[in-house]
């Protein structure tokens, strides 16, 4: 009876998944960032500056917690609805690649950082929250980093990051608008591809 052997595993997986879905957003940010910072500080390959390894860490640890479709749609603003589903898919893919690269680059630069987590206030039943953290760097002012998060069937997902008051989504909205003005959605896709290919 094969079924009996896989059933416990399935149940375990189910419970693990539901436990994660119920994890509070601030607890999630803390867990994920501590895990990533831990790897950054101890992994010998990361320490040696191995870009492929750093990207792997970002891909496997950070990315699952981001809602890239929503991030891309927000950065596109009103242009999102004008894009075909095929274009939308390409945009999400390319934007995701760009952010992974940027994030990996940033992680390589700031190895000696620690994070401070602010207590979250507000309605426990809210479906959208902002989790506030601070990055403490040696010899520099602390940099506040806020994560805008939304509750989805797959658990809490980040849809914007605000670093020292600079929103990722707002910043890219200008960039995207400009590319679209100069040649439509295809021009934006082309520019993103070129940037990622470089």
């Amino acid at each position: 009876m094969k079924l009996f052997r896989i059933l416990p595993a399935l149940l375990c997986a189910f419970f693990a998944a539901s436990a994660l879905a119920q994890e509070a957003p601030d607890a999630m940010v803390k867990r994920v960032s501590q895990e990533v910072l831990g790897i950054i500080k101890t992994d010998p390959k990361v320490q040696a500056g191995d870009q492929a390894r750093i990207r792997e860490v970002v891909e496997t640890k950070l990315l699952p917690n981001f809602d890239f479709e929503r991030i891309t749609a927000l950065a596109m603003g009103r242009n999102w609805r004008q894009a075909t589903p095929e274009q939308q898919k390409q945009l999400v893919d390319q934007f995701r690649t760009l952010l992974v690269r940027t994030y990996s680059g940033a992680l390589t630069q700031y190895k000696d950082q620690t994070m401070d987590y602010k207590a979250m206030r507000g309605d426990p039943n809210a479906t959208e929250v902002t989790v506030r953290t601070e990055v403490i760097r040696q010899g520099g002012a602390p940099v506040p980093i806020d994560y805008a998060m939304a509750k989805t069937p797959q658990g809490w997902k980040v849809y914007d990051i605000v670093v020292g008051g600079v929103s990722l989504v707002t910043n890219y909205r200008d960039e995207f608008n400009e590319q679209i003005k100069n040649g439509g959605v295809d021009n934006l896709i082309k520019t993103l591809q070129k940037k990622n290919g470089a």
Partner: peptide, 11 residues
Amino acid sequence: AALDKYTFIRR
């Protein structure tokens, strides 16, 4: 990060 550094820095 930037597609166009000028607009990126400005915003």
